[in-house]
Amino acid sequence: MLNVTDINVYYGSIHALHDMTFHVNDGEIVSLIGANGAGKSTTLKTISGLLRSRTGDIEFDGHSISRTEPDVIVRQGLTHVPEGRRIFLSMTVEENLDMGAFTVREGKKQALDDVYDRFPRLAERRSQIAGTLSGGEQQMLAMGRALMIRPKMMMLDEPSMGLAPILVSQIMDIIVELNKAGTTILLVEQNARLALKISHRSYVIESGRIVLSDTAENLLNNDQVKKAYLGG
């Protein structure tokens, strides 16, 4: 589904991603784990076209997207729920979802009903201004908004950030459900244990490099990973 080959991304003179190569197969949940500032968000932004790699290639669903504009990438069925949710705070819940369906011409109503079915809280609050939602509701809205295009693949950047544990496990359950319903998932998390619990495979990123990759199960039992990311 997604093949990232040898990408190198710079912020001015800072070399943020080094020769990164990884892939996500159709139907998988793959996670990128690593410390703050390791380059996880940069990786997602590069895939969705907000940043450009100087080298290499990114292939999604059989097409190279490394020179494609972000809005065209969305139209191809790859959606990105950014770090910090980035919902439109001054708009209502429903207006936010409508924005999510910006590229959708047909079946908007059905997509909206599906999102409300999955997130009943959003249905209750459909005409509320998004800025007044709680953190968990905002995360649900960000995910609901991304689901409006019925994506083939969804990238989630730190969905657990700033949420109470009960909400975190709810959000993780939803990610698993979405995956079971056929959406391929690329998940970025600082909370490695959380990510490994629901992923099939995972890549460990340190200072812009992939240093380890394996099945989630093996990584959970890897001494190095345990020590560095799972608190012993």
């Binding site: 969705s48 907000l50 972000p70 969305v74 139209r75 919902i87 439109f88 001054s90």
Partner: peptide
């Protein structure tokens, strides 16, 4: 409201 988020919605 948010240029980057708008791009992620598929807005040019």
């Amino acid at each position: 409201e948010d240029t980057e988020a708008a791009q992620l919605m598929g807005i040019n």
